[in-house]
Design a protein around this nucleic acid. Structure first.
Lengths: 196, 196
DNA sequence: TATTTTTTGTACCTTATCGCATAAAATAAA
DNA sequence: TTTATTTTATGCGATAAGGTACAAAAAATA
């Protein structure tokens, strides 16, 4: 147990509040005052606990991506059938993308690209997520091929790219207001056509 | 010829400068001072000629989308073969997405989503582009089906969504630094797999 | 109880930002 | 030449932003 004055805030909850705000408004449009309110902290405490605005944003990105990574583990890896695994993964993603009112899509895909050029570290974060997803899809496709679930004609790397393209369009369209049912149809058709 | 003092700036060039700056930094991270420099105008003249920052941004979006619409006409509609037409369309898009250093992807897809919730008109612009592309792809696929170029098993609306997903991933990945050759492979594979 | 350690919260500083008021400048028409 | 019209360009003013100094507060330890 630490020595000094106890913290008034819950670090996890504060970061979640920051994440929600960045998710809605992006990095540049969010002020520290907004953040202070959303995190239930005052600015100096924020700075002391989490660093400056960019650092908080990147921590929020990290927290958000944890959800996606969790989906990769529990759905894509753990489910024996590739087909079912992909559908479960997209379902999980849609729960997140369409889980707020209004729907906000993906924090990374919908807010990081506009900052990626001005903030190289954010660009790195974006690249990191993209390549992790590409790799996860590719590995899973290779396994399915080895197990004979899908044709040898499927090219794992390129198919992985298109599966990620599907995930990205779900994220973007969710934020643009497309309904979850509509998006589910797109995801289902993608799985059907790309996995054959 | 108008009565008063002649304009110092070229309206078309000024808007192009604004577009480039918004393309790099997004709406919120761009200041009017940055814009004034990029447009070679002073702030009051900007305000007088183009309105406030949001309005300039939307005019830039509009100008940018004109390029995409042009690609739809010249490549997708004008080329007899759907397969070749799609490849030409994606090629044209990649020239734009990868045409700067560093590559900046698509102004709409990479910068509008983060503003879409705070600026409803921007959300409308985003929805507008998405549905125009969906419609254009769908119509073209229907025609190809009628002409017997592609199978009746292809579902035009859903395939259109996935073609647009491909375009979106090209935009996002270009901005994240993926090379044009790499992206060309993805586009080619998408056409091959989705059109069959 | 006294000391040490950590967080809090007020207040502040510097800089940036948006939008506009205003006068000078430059041209066409009267 | 005079008047009307339009743009330019300086610069104002109010506000918002990011970041930090500093003293008070709250707890553990000696």
């Amino acid at each position: 147990m630490p020595r000094g004055r106890p913290r008034k805030f819950d670090e996890e909850a504060a970061l979640k509040g920051a994440m929600l705000l960045f998710w809605e408004k992006g990095l540049s449009a969010t002020s520290l005052d907004d953040l202070a309110q959303a995190m239930n902290m005052n600015r100096p405490s924020i700075y002391n606990a989490f660093g400056n605005k960019d650092e908080i944003y990147r921590k929020a990105l990290d927290k958000f991506c944890g959800q996606l990574d969790h989906g990769l583990e529990t759905a894509l890896e753990a489910i024996p059938s590739l087909h079912k695994g992909l559908e479960a993964f997209f379902d999980q993603a849609l729960e997140v993308y369409c889980g707020t009112h209004p729907a906000m899509g993906c924090l990374m895909i919908c807010t990081a690209p506009s900052e990626a050029l001005s903030h190289p570290e954010v660009g790195e974060d974006l690249r990191g997520l993209i390549s992790r997803l590409d790799n996860a899809f590719t590995q899973r496709l290779r396994r399915a091929q080895k197990e004979g679930e899908i044709s040898k004609d499927v090219q794992p790397e390129l198919t992985a790219s298109l599966l990620q393209a599907t995930l990205q369009t779900l994220a973007l369209r969710a934020r643009a207001g497309t309904s979850k049912q509509e998006l589910k149809k797109i995801a289902g058709y993608a799985v059907k056509r790309l996995i054959e």
